[in-house]
Nucleic acid binder design. Structure first.
Lengths: 336, 336
DNA sequence: AGCAAAAATACAAACGTTTGCACTAATTGC
DNA sequence: GCAATTAGTGCAAACGTTTGTATTTTTGCT
């Protein structure tokens, strides 16, 4: 099965490859007549464009690269689906890489994408990411870079993020309304925008309620299951806490498990609220209050931003996706 | 920042591009001396190979494409991680596409990968997949295709699957040992190998115990949460069942939810066992007995098979990955 | 030293497009 | 009716590699 090229169809129609190329690209210089003829025979001969050759010549491609910390988190996998959906409809392809929260792997992913001459890159920074020189390199090369969720302000380009501040703010406010008085906060690395913003929201809600913000109530780098377990015990025994607002569902999960183990009843004696609304949140016992980030919508908006950039738009959009607090058993002391 | 090419480094060393190319490729025709010199100046000048150009010339690439039904299932996302890990170490790149269980999307993904001249393809069939002409096209083109999990025997090439039969067999045997006597089976489409095999395992365990296999006890296309809810009610009320072995965790989850709603206690009155060991299985209440498929190991083996193929190995491996029954509360009536 | 064989390198074409420029034919304006 | 524009197409180079073949240089041997 010989692969058929633009030349083959040119020969058959007795025109030149350049005309065929332009016809297929819908170039206005070609008459509707020949364009139609080219289209037809291209289909008839089963022509499939060689995007590699086109990439080489053009120096870019219709493929968009996406780097995420890990595809096994519900948030990221849903963002990906949202992006893919919209991008495919617009005729672009998406290729995905994981950084596994690892700087070295992130750099490798960037390199791979650049080598493959992707037309644009979508990325959410890994925890370890710093310096960002590898990312700036892409920008310098003229590759549009769209950041989402974990973003760095020193890298130019569109940024799509959640309303983390408000998500945290309403979560803590909700805990306060349910009578919790000593609320600790499980945070990620405060060097990362999302965790910083959520902490600000936590702080704002406390201060609005006339309560003082205590730094010792913030546990940095406490977003995995193990740290959740460990720190909830400290919060309870050493700080006399009666609730936790966690920046992630996994540490909230750990907290719930530890509390159960310790015989502390939730939400009667201790309130728990998470972030990300992982699928397991509604399956646990008690079910976990969390913040839905609407990742699919975020994905759609990211795709739109990328498409605009690929069409040469200069403007850098900054989009904030609203979030929704999903109230469940783990925080609901007052039934309404 | 001008991009530097093989020619630039040739000019600088006063040799030809071909020599540089061979030197970088570790070709034996090049003397160690010049090879070293080339390597050195390449690094010094910040040379980055243009893989697109190489792909065009060679007609293939070091990029491997992977098509999965959906990345948001724990099984698939872990297989992907396993593949990526090993592939990256061997110097290959992985690009991922989702079929969303949709034939049209699957065909599109195949087309995209072929257009991008991937060196090989890893795939697990979508539910809708049929005919397989699009996949055979890749095989005809000489692209190595490695199948995993959901495989079709009419497509040549290595196949890596779980020991579905044994997984089902031990699950049902375990239910029988716990005194369950009327066990129904939630299956997927029986046109797909994995579900077929699991049903065979179910059947074998029953027959070994001297119980008759009743077709009415098998619910086909019952692998999502909703069907699990619906069918467990039918099983209980119409068939007098006292347990279910489900081919997937999601329908087992649905069953557990419905049973709780109906006030049926698990495992005292009804036993439940699933498949895939989704993360939520151990978080539920009661925790869900399930079958761990060792997806990461599967991913590693897939990667090894692909690498062998890319190196020109003719042999088609058929690998079966063992599974482990994880016994939890939902099926454990006899505490040992 | 001289020659054949082997080793190292050079040459040039090829991969399949895209695109600036040149060219011809058709159309427009006056 | 003629110059000037425009529409439509062709020509040829370029993108950066790889690779078969030719050529040069080195090596080993007598």
């Amino acid at each position: 099965m010989k692969k058929i090229t633009i030349k083959d169809i040119a020969r058959k129609l007795d025109i030149t490859p350049s005309t065929v190329s332009r016809a297929l690209a819908d170039n206005s210089r070609i008459s509707p007549k020949t364009r139609a003829k080219v289209m037809e025979t291209a289909k008839k001969m089963g022509y499939e464009p060689n995007v590699i050759a086109a990439s080489l010549r053009k120096g870019t491609s219709d493929t968009v690269g996406m780097i995420v910390p890990g595809i096994n988190r519900s948030f990221f996998s849903n963002v990906i689906s949202g992006v893919e959906e919209m991008l495919n409809n617009a005729g672009f392809n998406l290729i995905i890489s994981q950084s596994n929260e690892n700087l070295k792997k992130e750099k490798l992913a960037v390199q791979t994408l650049m080598q493959n001459r992707v037309g644009a890159v979508i990325m959410s920074l890994s925890v370890q990411s710093s310096g960002h020189s590898h990312i700036k390199k892409m920008v310098k090369r003229g590759i549009p870079v769209v950041q989402f969720d974990r973003v760095a302000s020193d890298i130019p380009g569109p940024k799509i993020v959640n309303d983390n501040f408000t998500g945290a703010y309403v979560s803590v406010k909700h805990l306060l309304e349910n009578g919790f008085k000593r609320i600790v906060h499980f945070s990620g690395s405060l060097g990362i925008n999302v965790y910083k913003e959520r902490m600000e929201g936590y702080k704002a809600a406390l201060e609005e309620a006339g309560m003082e913000f205590n730094e010792r109530f913030v546990f940095e780098n406490s977003i995995i299951r193990e740290t959740g377990k460990r720190n909830v015990e400290i919060a309870l025994n050493k700080l006399g806490a009666d609730a936790v607002f966690s920046s992630g569902d996994f540490s909230a999960l750990g907290a719930l498990e530890k509390l159960k183990e310790m015989g502390v009843s939730v939400p009667e004696e201790f309130g728990v609220s998470g972030f990300a609304n992982e699928p397991f949140a509604e399956l646990m016992h008690p079910t976990l209050t969390s913040v839905e980030q609407n990742p699919r919508e975020m994905g759609n908006r990211i795709a739109l931003a990328i498409i605009k950039k690929l069409k040469g738009d200069e403007e850098d959009e900054n989009i904030v996706i609203p979030v929704d607090l999903i109230i469940r058993e783990s925080s609901m002391r007052i039934k309404s």
